[in-house]
Amino acid sequence: MKVRIALTVNDEVHEALVPVHKTLLEVLREDLALTGTKHGCELGECGTCTVLVDGQPVLSCLALPLETEGRRITTIEGLADGARLHPLQQAFAELGAAQCGYCTPGILLTAAALLSERPSPTRQEVKEALAGNLCRCTGYTKILDAVELAALRMERART
């Protein structure tokens, strides 16, 4: 059974006719061509497919588009402000926090949600916030460093 849905993704409304059982992950990638959202298990066990729904990190592999209609979806393609990178994106690039880069979109979005809720997190708080995103390349060290750097820069920009 197909349904017509209207999703608000990165502040743009997308209409699509999709089967009910197609997950948000699949619709983003396959129907909206937003392939920045990656996937590592499709069972909620790795965090790779994280997107923000109303600012909160959720797993797009376990969400139905029907259930996210009328809510604000943010994917990695929507993290930058136009051509201006989010401070997290800048810090991740500068510090080598993305190696293979496959977990990076999910981690950036999770970290962005953290920083909007808690602008100056401790390292332990960053670890806890990112505990649902597996990375096999970095040992997380540069990722944590980059989140801290971005937080610092955002803090400075505010004052």
Binding site: G44, G47, P57, V58, L59, L62, A63, T110, A131, G132
Partner: peptide, 9 residues
């Protein structure tokens, strides 16, 4: 329970 994302859901 599980991970932060799954607790949000």
């Amino acid at each position: 329970v599980s991970s932060p994302q799954l607790r949000n859901m």
